[in-house]
């Protein structure tokens, strides 16, 4: 069974003034995310990708269609806590997710709400902080941490609830390159070492490339769904919706147009350099 399943989901935000109906933020969207996957959802601002995060754990409820979390329909209120415990969400601004004045107390917030035994909370908090590499900072005040460190604390706060799936809604958008790299590494560890399903929402293609599967959103709909290589092979399509493709893909695309037979799915520097090397030596 899929861990998260969107079935023909349509959602629109309530119109605030004058009752003018807003266009749907998500339109007839279907997607199935399997256990253990690392999925990136790629799309520009306003493509509807952030709404997906809130639909996936019942923070928002669909207007049409349904969302199933491990088989539970998100409209069922009695499953609410169970759904939120199964699918944890990390948001963009780390400052606005940290509740407590001490790192470890913040990480404990979720498990405390679930009514877990103090000794078990302690174990989970320590292990979550170690997973994201913030254990040494457990006694610090969050306001003295960098953006990347705060975001890792926020991630620890979610994994301490031991969810089976974690959705990250543009977690690196406000970070500098170092913070971005550290957060990215922590996320990869969650998926690889703990087997947690990761849904990573972003507009940075260099981060999406790290996933096993990329789902591209455009105009509130699903546009593409495939492996990074499959998705970026169609560089023209990606660019046409205002997204970047890796420079390596752009370069090979230009050269291919001139009849140089490079592959069309070279995502990493290594792959491109080797392909060029092979072509030149082959001659």
């Amino acid at each position: 069974m899929a861990i998260i399943k969107f079935e023909n989901v349509t959602f629109r935000y309530e119109s605030d003034e004058e009752g003018v109906a807003l266009a749907p933020a998500v339109k007839d969207f279907s997607l199935s995310i399997e256990k253990g996957e690392f999925v990136a959802i790629l799309g520009h601002n306003g493509s509807g990708k952030s709404t997906l995060a809130k639909l996936a754990n019942g923070l928002l409820l669909p207007e049409k269609g349904r969302v199933l979390v491990d088989g539970m329909d998100t409209v069922n209120e009695e499953d609410d806590i169970k759904i939120k415990q199964t699918v944890g969400v990390v948001f963009q601004n780390p400052d606005n997710q940290i509740v407590a004045t001490i790192v470890e107390e913040d990480v404990a917030f979720g498990p405390e709400n679930l009514g877990i035994e103090p000794t078990e909370i302690r174990r989970r908090v320590d292990s979550a902080l170690k997973t994201v590499g913030m254990y040494e900072y457990r006694k610090h005040g969050p306001h003295k941490l960098s953006g990347g460190q705060k975001q890792r604390v926020a991630i620890a706060g979610i994994i301490a609830m031991e969810p089976r799936c974690i959705i990250l809604d543009e977690p690196t958008a406000m970070l500098d390159p170092i913070g971005r790299r550290d957060v990215m590494n922590a996320i990869k560890r969650l998926n690889r070492d703990l087997g947690i399903t990761v849904v990573f929402i972003t507009h940075y293609m260099e981060e999406a490339v790290e996933a096993d599967r990329i789902v591209v959103m455009d105009d509130s709909r699903l546009l593409m769904d495939g492996t990074p290589k499959e998705v970026f092979a169609d560089a023209t399509k990606i660019r046409s919706i205002g997204l970047d493709v890796p420079q390596t893909c752009q370069l090979s695309e230009l050269l291919r147009a001139d009849g140089i037979k490079l592959k069309n799915d070279l995502l990493s520097i290594d792959e491109l350099v080797e392909n060029i090397d092979a072509l030149l030596k082959g001659k």
Binding site: V89, F91, V99
Partner: peptide
């Protein structure tokens, strides 16, 4: 206001329900 809204969402995602049945790590 924006912060408050985002914080409320984040707290809901962390199963906060007004402190019912809440335990404490550092009892």
């Amino acid at each position: 206001i924006r912060r408050a809204y985002e914080l409320a969402n984040a707290m809901t995602c962390r199963c906060y329900n007004g402190g019912q049945g809440k335990t404490t790590m550092n009892a």
